[in-house]
Write a protein that binds this DNA or RNA. Structure first.
Lengths: 242, 242
DNA sequence: GTTCCAAAAAATCTCGAAATTATAGTTGAC
DNA sequence: GTCAACTATAATTTCGAGATTTTTTGGAAC
């Protein structure tokens, strides 16, 4: 919960969470498959099918799904089972507007209150992100997963000093949702070119404690990501339908 | 989900939800008990105890609790069971700052976009709230529960025209959390006196489509509620401890 | 008195069969 | 041919016993 600066736990979110319980493992696996589009939006989640797929009992499965409902990755209809939460351009716009509001506010607080430890974490995260972006320029579409992870860490490091647990909690949910859209659009991988420049500017403004500039850059950064994604998503099958 | 104007469903949240499934019933019952302090903050939630209390099987109970974890009314520690989420003055401040931000933004959008139906709903909600407040002046601390419900409906009606699902969703979670603190502080019932005037002003500003005034009033309204609650909560046993 | 270890106790977690409910298919009446 | 009621099928939901893990207890060594 409070370990956003910890390097070792960087890969916590993506896949294998070294699950201590079976529910946790199932939850992680299903979440992974939803985020990566293996379980397509709108798909009916039938119990027999899921029980085979993830090798768990009915109740265990049910608990994992309930947890995903709480994060709005799954929907449930009383007595009619579960579905992968549908996606739409409308939802993406809503989601992003909300995330922008929260992320900017979190940045504002974080930059104001961040101490040396926060700065160190931010610099480190930026460095790691830079490294991956260099690799990305050579090997093209490999490392895409890794870039996603580093990108997330960088943005998390940026708001790490924000003291509001609720703000960070809700931001995390929204970021995860956005991540879902991003990965679905990633069928045609978007090579990040000027994104590095944006990150650098953002990073420097934060270190210079220029709150207003950083917020402005952060805001624009999200806007551009959305602009790109909107273009891609509009073409992808199923975004409009489900 | 979309029935915030429906009179008949006014009592949906508090208690008996006419549960279609047993999980739903258990969830509602436990939620009710947590919100009203029957299950005190920090309390360990042992399965045997809960199974007896609510008459449900282990898995069913577990699912209900998982759902409550999603709303941050319950915490879970891997392999160590569940607890009623602790409360603290710090959390209350955080929670409220967050809610203020979201509620004001939702009001802003709602007042800008609200149509005739929205206006009608708002007027109706204000009227019902007024009626209860009159009753409250006479019979003192009875009807306190009803006032809570009408107050909630009024504030929901105010933001009903906000088109953002995410904004309303997250606001709902925060409002519920705040409700928890309010009811715990309600051991010494605070008689709402000038609150009626505040509501009237807010209501009129909204109908006049004076966005800025309404937001200002809404903001102040929350601030005052917090000021009062802070004074009460500081005295209540257990808010600081757990 | 403190610290360690093992065994017992208590709690949580997991499973799949059985009960309940929804859906599809079928027949019969109009 | 359409609709309603009924039946058969398929899916979800519920339960509690058993497996697994944590916590407590008791006792021996230091």
């Amino acid at each position: 919960m409070d370990s956003s600066l910890n390097t070792a736990e960087a890969m916590d979110a993506p896949k294998v969470v070294a699950a201590r319980s079976i529910v946790e493992a199932a939850y992680g696996a299903i979440r992974h498959d939803i985020l990566n589009g293996v379980l397509a939006p709108g798909t009916k989640l039938r119990f027999e099918m899921l029980r085979q797929r993830y090798r768990v009992g009915a109740s265990t499965l049910r608990e994992a799904l309930t947890r995903l409902v709480g994060e709005a990755l799954v929907t449930s209809e009383e007595q009619r089972g579960f579905r992968v939460a549908p996606i739409s351009l409308e939802d993406f716009a809503d989601l992003t507007a909300m995330r922008k509001m929260l992320e900017v506010e979190a940045m504002r607080q974080s930059i104001r209150l961040g101490d040396d430890v926060w700065e160190a974490g931010l610099v480190a995260a930026f460095h790691r992100l830079t490294k991956v972006e260099e690799k990305l320029l050579e090997h093209a579409d490999a490392h895409q997963d890794e870039w996603e992870a580093r990108n997330r860490e960088f943005h998390l490091a940026m708001i790490a000093a924000c003291p509001s647990r609720w703000l960070k909690h809700m931001h995390a949910i929204l970021y995860q949702q956005a991540e879902r859209y991003r990965r679905i659009a990633l069928v045609n991988p978007v090579v990040p070119r000027d994104i590095h420049a944006e990150h650098r500017a953002l990073h420097e403004a934060a270190l210079a404690r220029d709150v207003e500039l950083a917020c402005l850059l952060g805001s624009r950064h999200i806007d551009r990501t959305v602009a790109v994604l909107n273009r891609v998503l509009a073409k992808v099958e199923g975004v409009r339908a489900s």
